[in-house]
């Protein structure tokens, strides 16, 4: 098999779901892995409010319990991203993508800040609405071609998946946190705790890179 991502180094079959590592997916997987390890190891930042024109500043206290929850959610987000990077099954990819959406809400959901919670709620609604085109797209791939495996789909001489279905999947992934829907997400980054919040934007970036490969391959 030869496709956009390059020739696979090796395949890991789990029944009919085949995980594959091409130079492209392996690079994305390693990036997600490194950031997850960073989120596990690093100590979270403490937000400082500096009084303009003076030396005074106030440090925001964040309870350890809240930080532990957010670290857990960041790790879950990293695992979901890693899964989405290497899976060779369209429906699996869609599930991992919506899981990234849930964990992104979870990372900032525990923050006791009204603005952040409002933003997380609005973003969560966009993400939840985006599961409709995502699942519909994946189901229509199975309906038109009879398979969900990217390996089998890429082996077909001409692409059997209608353009409309590819557009649905891309729209769904955009809803999980890419432009123009990213606007709903930007306000969430007021939340303190640097390594965990960065996981939100990194995961959407990686998912978007991967969906380009998926859409062009199948």
């Amino acid at each position: 098999m030869s496709n956009l991502g390059g020739v696979p180094y090796f395949l890991v079959p789990f029944g009919d779901i085949v995980i594959y590592f091409t130079p492209f997916t392996a690079a994305l997987f390693i990036l997600a892995l490194v950031f997850t390890v960073l989120a596990i190891l690093s100590r979270p930042e403490r937000q400082l409010d500096i009084v303009f024109g003076g030396d005074a500043f106030t440090a925001k206290e964040t309870p350890v319990r809240e930080m532990k929850f957010r670290r857990f959610m960041a790790i879950a987000c990293g695992l979901a991203t890693m899964g989405a990077m290497v899976t060779g099954d369209i429906f699996d990819f869609v599930l991992f993508t919506s899981l990234v959406g849930i964990t992104n809400v979870g990372i900032v959901g525990a923050v006791k800040n009204r603005h952040v919670q409002e933003a997380a709620f609005q973003y969560g609604m966009v993400a939840l609405a985006a599961t409709m085109p995502l699942f519909a797209g994946a189901a229509m791939v199975a309906a038109t071609t009879g398979t969900l495996s990217m390996l089998e789909l890429s082996a077909m001489p001409t692409s059997q998946v209608p353009l409309m279905v590819k557009a649905l999947i891309t729209l769904g992934v955009m809803g999980e946190g890419m432009a123009p829907f990213y606007a709903a997400k930007a306000e969430m980054f007021r939340a303190p705790g640097a390594p965990y919040v960065i996981m939100c934007s990194l995961s959407s970036l990686l998912i978007f890179l991967r969906v380009i490969e998926v859409v062009l391959t199948v």
């Binding site: 959406g101 849930i102 809400v105 959901g109 919670q117 997380a120 969560g124 609604m125 939840l128 599961t131």
Partner: peptide, 11 residues
């Protein structure tokens, strides 16, 4: 879907 709905209602 249910997980996302539960999370949103909690928020």
């Amino acid at each position: 879907g249910i997980a996302e709905l539960l999370a949103l209602s909690q928020i």
